[in-house]
Each structure stands twice: as structure tokens, then as C-alpha cells.
């Protein structure tokens, strides 16, 4: 469609989304190009400015809600500049504002603010995963009772599946702690690199973030890759011998079940 309507909408879009503002965007256009009537109190440019401001501030406010820690750390002016820059390559293409920030973590990797605060891309990634977890599908969860109903001889071949709200994240920065501090105190002190492994998931309607140690993270990654329970036990068998390994893995499993980490539907390796 290359209609008058399309031309009008493309022209308006370019004016109201121009990062340099309507007045500058309009330079080079003749009055005849500008299909806007003045009102008794506003010029066409001033009328367009109303829409330009609403466009930017609606998305800015939404992203500030979605990335509260990133916005606190960068400050009002910094976050404003960041989103101005972000919307140039990443205008919203979704029907919902909920998705407007999905490219922000990646974008921060090459943005000057990501250089000033090197942990910022990972912090944005954590905040994005919290959103993803918040409205992820509801899954029936696997309970200890449900697991006990499965004959023990099948356990080594069992493949657990995370609930859809569960995400694993690894960072070279203490992003979990940074996020918590910003939430509680509104600011952070100096940040030093420190490996962080996190598990993010939702129980009922609350999203949780938990710092996990290297061993647990390795096991969870195995589960994420679809490895059967028997393979998980092998990690411990090499360290502690068979009997202790089964006990240790079972204890870990029991904790995860209490935290409702797995879907009730189980698969078996090769079955």
C-alpha cells in the first residue's frame, strides 16, 4: 500500500519519534509537507510535540518500571539518554509495552553506559528475566509425592523439566547483590567483579532470585540440557562414591521439589 494515508502516517511517525525533536526533524520540509492545522493556541509543530513527548515518555516510564535498578544506577538523565539512544535501533515492534525492553540488555553491551558501569548489561539481563518469569506459563509442578509414585528403578533415567518461569544466569559481576542493594537502599557502593550464578523462578505469583554455588549450578545446567537423573548422580559418584552420591543428589532434589522448580510431567531417557 502506497497511499496518501501511508505517506501521512510515515511522515508523522518520523516527526514524533525523531530523537532530536520535532522542530529539527521538520527542517527541510515545506509547510505544504506538513499536513497539520494550527489550533487557536498551538502551531502545527507544537501540536506534533505533544505526540512526540507522549511517545517518548510513555516508553521511558514503562522501561523505568521494567528496569528499576538500571534506571537508579544510571540516574534520571543517564536513563533518559540511554532510552533515547535505545529507541533509535530498537523502536517497539510489539503490541505490548511489556516487550519494549527485550533488547536493552544486549544494547547496553555496546552503549557508553555499559562501559561506565560494566555490570550494567548483566543487571539489565537479570531484570529482563524477572519480567519473563513473572508472566511465564503456569505449569503443574512436580511434588515429592508425585516423584515417590515412580518406581525407584526408573529414577536414574528420569529427565526433569524446569517450570517455564525458571531461568539460569551466570555473570562475572555480583548482579544479584547489586539488584538487591538498589532495591533496598536505592544505591550501591563500589562494585568489584565477582562470579555470580543465579536461579530465577516463580512460585505462585512471586518471582524469586537465588544465588547458587558452582556445584548446584552445574547440576541445574545438566537438567536444563535434558540430562537424566542418573547422570546428575555421577557427578557425586566420582567425588564421594555411589551410596553417598545418591543421598546427596536426593537431598538436592528434595530441596528443588520444595521450591517447585520442576514441571509435573516427567520424561525418561530413551522412553
Amino acid at each position: 500500500m502506497n497511499s496518501h494515508l501511508q505517506k501521512t502516517e510515515e511522515l508523522l511517525w518520523n516527526f514524533i519519534t525523531a530523537p532530536e525533536g520535532v522542530q529539527k526533524a521538520i527542517e527541510g520540509h515545506s509547510d505544504a509537507d506538513l499536513p497539520i492545522r494550527p489550533s487557536t493556541s498551538l502551531s502545527p509543530v507544537e501540536r506534533l510535540d505533544i505526540y512526540a513527548n507522549m511517545y517518548f515518555y510513555r516508553i521511558l516510564d514503562s522501561l523505568r518500571e521494567d528496569f528499576p535498578a538500571v534506571s537508579k544506577i544510571t540516574g534520571d538523565a543517564g536513563f533518559h539518554s540511554l532510552i533515547t539512544d535505545y529507541l533509535i535501533p530498537h523502536p517497539s515492534t510489539s503490541y505490548t509495552l511489556r516487550n519494549a525492553g527485550k533488547n536493552l540488555p544486549e544494547f547496553l553491551k555496546t552503549h557508553p553506559l555499559g562501559g561506565k558501569y560494566p555490570f550494567l548489561p548483566d543487571l539489565a539481563c537479570l531484570e529482563w528475566l524477572l519480567i519473563e518469569s513473572f508472566d511465564a506459563p503456569d505449569n503443574p509442578v512436580l511434588s515429592a509425592t508425585g516423584l515417590k509414585a515412580i518406581p525407584p528403578d526408573q529414577w536414574p533415567r528420569l529427565i526433569f523439566k524446569f517450570v517455564d518461569s525458571c531461568h539460569l544466569m551466570e555473570s562475572g559481576w555480583p548482579v544479584g547483590e547489586i539488584h538487591r542493594k538498589v532495591k533496598e537502599r536505592g544505591k550501591i557502593g563500589p562494585v568489584k567483579p565477582s562470579p555470580n550464578k543465579l536461579r530465577i523462578w516463580r512460585r505462585e505469583f512471586k518471582v524469586y532470585t537465588r544465588l547458587v554455588d558452582d556445584e548446584e549450578y552445574a547440576l541445574l545446567k545438566q537438567i536444563e540440557r535434558g540430562k537424566p537423573f542418573g547422570d546428575l548422580c555421577q557427578v557425586y559418584v566420582r567425588k564421594t562414591g555411589f551410596k553417598k552420591a545418591v543421598q546427596t543428589a536426593a537431598a538436592k532434589l528434595s530441596g528443588w521439589l520444595k521450591e517447585e522448580l520442576f514441571q509435573s510431567t516427567l520424561k525418561t531417557d530413551g522412553g
Partner: peptide, 20 residues
């Protein structure tokens, strides 16, 4: 209209009232 070219302004933008 809320956007053009697959982009969304998340705003309720007015239309020209024409036959087209």
C-alpha cells in the same frame, strides 16, 4: 493508528478523516 512499518508508538494517534 498506533504505528507504521511494524513499529508501535503505544499511543492512540489520530487519523485524517478522508474517504480513503
Amino acid at each position: 493508528w498506533t504505528g507504521i512499518g511494524g513499529k508501535n508508538a503505544h499511543d492512540l494517534l489520530p487519523l485524517p478523516y478522508t474517504e480513503e
